[in-house]
């Protein structure tokens, strides 16, 4: 098994499948009255969050607690970090406290990789800058599998601000590993250079959402920040919504079985219309539920829960 989970590229098909299968076991557990497993009793998991992200932090916290781990939440605000402590010194502190795993969310791409140089425990990337968010990709794959029965062979459209999206990068890597076909859709200004080859060969790019929808099994809408228009990535929120937002008429162009995903938090009326977000195709709430099961599986497998 892996030591760290830093990138979707760390996962081969067998490992990813093992995680998804294990997550299925964890999900069954969640249906029981007592939701706790003793697997990680006596182990310490630190949530090291340099960015506010209530949903991801709570998801990891719930996952670790259901495995009976001791959880320490370390947020940058109001901590030694706001007093200017370096990542290295924070790492040495956590190391000295005997952290078995550090779940890190950080605004700088690559910070989890840098952290991994300084601590003996496992490092889980919970989102680094505009780079990756591998557990999000795992929970997305889990959601596709549970809704559509498989991942291999699916056509997945990832729509929106791919340039700044860590969700998109991890999904492109993992979905390619699992045999899905990914098409990235957005205005050219928000599609990163050389994306067709940078992550996984065979990744396709389209600037035309309407052309992609009729053959998509999955449409994954990415959050688009309104501030991006200040940097001229697009002229206005209205124009963005018209060209790349998923509204009711567009949703009806999808095949009957197709699902609509969103990693959250959503901008209703911007990239996704309320009608779509609240429709039966939407998996948005399931994704949150599945997130806990997938993160339980990752913590369990990374921390050697299997061997105990």
């Amino acid at each position: 098994m892996l030591k760290h989970l830093l990138s979707g590229a760390d996962l081969d098909a067998a490992t990813a499948t093992l995680i998804l299968d294990t997550a299925g076991e964890m999900a069954r557990l969640a249906g029981r009255e007592v939701k706790k497993l003793p697997a990680l009793r006596g182990r310490t998991v630190v949530n090291l969050f340099y960015e506010d992200s209530t949903r991801t932090r709570i998801s990891f916290e719930a996952a670790a607690k259901r495995l009976s781990a001791d959880v320490i939440n370390f947020s940058a605000k109001g901590s030694s970090v706001s007093k200017g402590e370096s990542l290295k010194d924070t790492a040495l502190t956590l190391q000295a406290m005997g952290a078995d795993a550090v779940v890190i969310r950080h605004p700088a791409s690559g910070a989890p990789h840098t952290l991994a140089n300084w601590i003996d425990g496992s490092v889980l990337n919970a989102g680094d800058g505009t780079h990756e968010h591998p557990t999000q990709a795992l929970l997305d794959a889990y959601t596709m599998r549970s809704r559509l029965g498989r991942v291999a062979g699916l056509s997945v459209a990832v729509v929106g601000d791919v340039l700044h999206s860590r969700v998109a990068r991890s999904n492109v890597l993992l979905l390619a590993t699992l045999g899905a076909k990914v098409t990235l859709v957005g205005p050219p200004t928000l599609i990163p250079v050389d994306i067709g080859t940078a992550l996984a060969p065979g990744t396709e790019v389209s600037y035309d959402l309407d052309a992609v929808l009729p053959t998509a099994d999955v449409v994954m809408m990415l959050r688009v920040q309104r501030e991006r228009m200040a940097d001229s990535y697009f002229p206005s929120a209205r124009e963005y919504a018209r060209r790349y937002g998923l509204d009711g008429p567009r949703m009806r162009r999808l095949p009957d079985h197709a699902i609509v995903m969103h990693p959250g938090p959503m901008n209703r009326g911007m990239e996704i219309a309320p009608e779509v977000a609240d429709s039966s195709r939407s998996t948005i709430v399931e994704q949150v539920t599945n997130g806990v099961s997938v993160r339980m599986a990752v913590l369990y497998l990374l921390l050697g829960g299997m061997d105990r």
């Binding site: 505009t130 780079h131 250079v193």
Partner: peptide
């Protein structure tokens, strides 16, 4: 700016 920056999210 190129393939590597895209991959690394920088």
């Amino acid at each position: 700016e190129g393939e590597v920056s895209t991959r690394l999210g920088l």
